[in-house]
Design a protein around this nucleic acid. Structure first.
Length: 847
RNA sequence: GCCAUGGUGGCGGAAUGGUAUACGCGCGCGACUCAAAAUCGCGUUCCCGUAAGGGAUUGAGGGUUCAAGUCCCUCCCAUGGCACCA
């Protein structure tokens, strides 16, 4: 028999009908009764086109929204393109093709590919971040941040290849060398723009509690934000006007601080380094420039550092302690300076073991076993006269104890617990004006400057004195110039645009210059959920007229109120920290600026699993990208998307392998044949459930329940296996009533939308199956009048009995004991215990 | 290194602390066919056994429990992220 189901014609037919009927268009202005805004993370229009990973994300997301729609939700599913970014620029450097041209072409191809999935996208709402209609709002966002003092300039290091004379992305500078020429990459400081995301750290952390997001993602974000409670402590410097402020989470160990360490980048380094140490410090700074942050913080590597020659005063002990620099201290965290407590902090312990002069030494009053202490000098004869090598301040039982314990050798803190000592020393520091309570976050302010071409220009101009000024809103979009140099020159590409400079001087006056940096692409993707909702004035379809757009707010407040937050956002777990924190920050800021009514953009978040190929994430550089196109040609969209869903749990992903696609192909063909066969047998028009055996009826209703329950929790794989199992049953049936077949078409509608429409039509359904209501199951049909009880002896399965559903416990146990294979094992010893789990099992324990 | 996730037959995987291996792929045998493909039927975790049945088994080791893939501890391996790939 030839394949009865021809996906290419049938899928094209339904895609055309859906489009003609406009059933996926959403009128955002009309008040929605029960809105459901579903978003997937928009793709980057890469030259690799749409790959299997995109399908793995988009198709199940579509199935889920179809399921919602069949439950009466008014759904909105937009799609767009995250079109600015590095790959298009690198492609331009290599081939000379303008990023705008290559991006447009890729977008076009991907739209064609996307349409073949058959998703419910409302293409009228499409966005493309690289169009002036879009980046006008990226720039508007920058101006809002600037206006509200959330944007500022600061020096920050970039990866610099001295040979290529260009800034490198981290990806291009792995293992510290330039991926084009192999030269050692150095850290070069540049003045760049930052956004104050840290100001929202507490809110970003707190709001997580109420979000319907995966727990692991929330944990990762909490760790990323990295809130630490502690104190700042001021250390004076001997013979100097300067002081060093350190942040510590362990102010209780202040009496054990035997040295201070500054980050090599700390501004005080050059001010306090003594003449004798200048050479050593300069040499050290040189080596640091060549290290990545990960190399610097690697706990397994031996720590390095050099003394500055300066001494600080420990405010608690009034002792002089040396000030060093070491690269394990990062300038971006805390105050960029730490106190070294070798007795109770592992990094400090390691460091002081490398540089023994930092250990400090005092006569101890701790017992040799470190389990107890006495505050009288000679309490422990064994310890008398011994000099502890490491200052020890808390009793814990081992050197470098970081756990809880009692404070010793710490003057007025002696005898206190760690939490009490923290409180007392912090209060003391405040009294002495030598410190204060402080909360620090690991989260850093967002560096938004990029020394690249293919991004949204930062809407800032500089006056002849070099002071920044915002570009007034009426000049937006502040167009990206086209007369630029892509090849690396040591400057941002926009630097060479004559038009850009002339434009600036013409508008602002002679001697004024534009900002040459563009914005991080994460800025573009931090508010696109609002851009989909913009009901006028943007998008590929609309041109800018007279260089102006009417709206001065990013979104119509009524539309925002009814459609935000996004009901469901689906995307990869690789975005757990960066994109998903930036987007939340921007939404919060926009609420504070008064443009939106909500503070969180994504109500529910789900991560699809990662689809790998040959064990690794698909990427052009690894050459393991799999295109779905040939599979769609051969099997059609429905088979392919169901295969992806059948691979395993949606949130797991997996390694790509086309071996099993045949199984889904067979399933679809068999389902189609079942409809053909049963409908041709003259069953058309038969109503009611007559003709279906009781067992099949039960199976049908159990399947309705299972498919619904499973789709609701993204277990598409088991939903499909339930339908397969149902099909296996029904194929044995003589005849199947039409309404049972129509129920099956409805169950298939979210998972195989084209096939389901076809089957719905074949079985005489009116309208489209996607507009039908999800079928209900009859709970009465699911109840069994018998139950199977398994019998265990000492945890091992020894038999099974089938009894009536209402059989009493005692009766079941008695029956279990009589089972031949059970009684045999019960003879072996005394029955110590009998456990009955209702409806499930009997367990005997024999001694 | 740090943060997070995962590890179950030949393969993808299923399993509210209660029958481990559902469903599918693959494979084997059979039917149909001149033959093959397709389709249909039966079987299929591993070991012993004709069978009945027994034993082992969820990355490794330990623990809690009448009962552990599931909970706890230690370890191994793989993957994602680590702030300029998106």
């Amino acid at each position: 028999m030839s394949h009865p189901y021809d996906p290419s014609s049938i899928e094209a037919k339904w895609q055309k009908r859906w489009e003609e009927a406009g059933i996926y268009k959403t009128d955002l202005k009309k008040k929605a009764k029960d809105p459901y805004y579903s978003m997937v993370m928009f793709p980057y229009p890469s030259g690799d086109k749409l790959h299997v990973g995109h399908w793995y994300n988009f198709a199940p997301a579509d199935s889920f929204v179809r399921f919602q729609r069949m439950h009466g939700k008014e759904t909105f599913c937009p799609m767009g393109f995250d079109a600015f970014g590095l790959p298009a620029e690198n492609y331009a450097i290599k081939t000379g093709v303008h990023p705008d041209a290559s991006t447009r072409k890729n977008v076009e191809t991907m739209i064609t590919q996307l349409k073949r999935i058959g998703c419910m996208y409302d293409w009228d709402k499409m966005v493309n971040t690289s169009t002036p209609e879009y980046y006008r709002w990226t720039q508007w966002l920058f101006l809002q941040m600037y206006k509200h003092e959330l944007a500022y300039r600061k020096e920050a290091s970039v990866n610099w290849c001295p040979s290529c004379q260009t800034v490198l992305a981290n990806e291009q500078a792995q293992d510290g060398t330039c991926d084009r020429c192999g030269t050692t990459v150095v850290q070069k400081p540049l003045t760049q723009w930052f956004w104050k995301i840290k100001q929202y750290a507490e809110k970003l952390l707190k709001n997580l509690d109420d979000l319907d997001w995966p727990e692991k993602t929330k944990t990762m974000q909490r760790n990323w934000i990295g809130r630490s409670e502690g104190a700042e402590v001021e250390f004076g410097i001997q013979n100097s006007e300067f002081g060093i402020t350190v942040f510590t989470t362990r102010p209780d160990t202040l009496f054990g601080a035997t040295y201070l360490v500054l980050a090599p980048e700390h501004p005080l380094v050059e001010k306090i380094t003594t003449k004798e140490q200048q050479k050593a410090v300069a040499a050290y700074l040189d080596t640091v420039k060549k290290k990545t942050e990960m190399q610097r913080t690697d706990l397994t590597k031996e720590k390095t550092g050099v003394p500055t020659g300066a001494s600080a005063i420990n405010p608690a002990t009034h002792e002089q302690i040396p000030v060093w620099i070491a690269d394990y201290v990062l300038p971006t965290y805390g105050t960029g300076a730490v106190m070294g407590v070798p007795g109770h902090e592992e990094r400090d312990y390691d460091f002081a073991n490398t540089y023994k002069e930092l250990r400090g030494s005092i006569r101890c009053v701790i017992a040799p076993d470190r389990k107890s202490a006495d505050f009288s000098e000679h309490a422990y004869p064994g310890a008398e006269g011994t000099d502890q090598e490491i200052y020890e301040k808390i009793l814990g039982g081992e050197q470098c104890w970081t756990g809880p314990g009692m404070l010793v050798n710490s003057d007025f803190l002696d005898g206190l617990s760690v939490p009490d000592a923290k409180k007392k020393i912090t209060a003391w520091l405040e009294d002495e004006d030598a410190g204060r309570e402080k909360i620090t976050y690991r989260l850093r302010d967002w560096l938004v400057s990029r020394q690249r071409y293919w991004g949204a220009p930062i809407p800032i101009v500089y006056d002849p004195e070099g002071n920044p000024h915002p570009v007034p809103e009426k000049h937006l979009p502040w167009l990206l110039p086209t007369d630029v140099e892509f090849k690396p020159t040591g400057k941002s590409p926009l630097y060479y645009s004559k038009e850009f400079r002339e434009r600036t001087e013409k508008i602002f006056g002679k001697g004024w210059t534009p900002e040459f940096d563009t914005m991080d692409t994460f800025v573009c993707s931090s508010f696109y959920y609002l851009m989909y909702l913009q009901s006028e004035g943007h998008g590929m379809k609309l041109k800018i007229e007279n260089g102006k757009l009417k709206m001065n707010s990013i979104i119509d407040p009524h539309v925002e109120k009814s459609w935000m937050p996004v009901s469901l956002y689906i995307g990869g777990p690789e975005h757990a920290c960066m994109h998903l924190i930036y987007a939340r920050f921007v939404m919060m800021a926009l609420q504070d600026f008064g443009f939106v009514s909500h503070d969180e953009p994504f109500k529910k978040l789900v991560h699809q699993g990662l689809v790998t190929h040959k064990g690794a994430k698909m990427s052009k550089s690894k050459g393991n990208v799999v295109s779905p196109d040939s599979f769609i040609d051969r099997h059609g969209s429905d088979v392919f998307r169901m295969y992806l869903m059948f691979m395993g749990p949606f949130t797991d992903g997996g390694d790509w392998n086309d071996m099993g696609i045949k199984g889904i192909d067979r399933f679809v063909a068999r389902m189609y044949r079942l409809f053909e066969k049963k409908l041709n047998k003259g069953n058309k028009g038969v109503k009611g459930s007559k003709g279906l055996s009781a067992a099949s009826m039960t199976k049908l209703h159990a399947t309705i329940k299972k498919v619904g329950d499973d789709i609701a929790i993204f277990h598409f794989n088991t939903a499909i296996s339930a339908l397969m199992s149902l099909l296996n049953e029904l194929e044995k049936e003589e005849s199947i009533p039409v309404d049972a077949l129509q129920t099956i078409a409805k169950l298939l509608a979210p998972l195989a939308p084209h096939l389901a429409e076809e089957l719905w039509e074949m079985s005489g359904g009116t309208g489209m199956v996607i507009d039908q209501h999800w079928p209900a199951f009859d709970p009465k049909l699911l109840k069994n009048d018998t139950m199977t009880i398994v019998i265990q002896v000492n945890g091992k399965l020894r038999g099974e009995i089938t009894v009536g559903a209402k059989t009493a416990k005692e009766e079941i146990i008695a029956m279990a004991k009589k089972e031949e294979n059970v009684s045999k094992f019960l003879m072996e010893g005394q029955t110590k215990k009998e456990i009955y789990v209702p409806g499930k099992l009997v367990s005997f324990v024999v001694g």
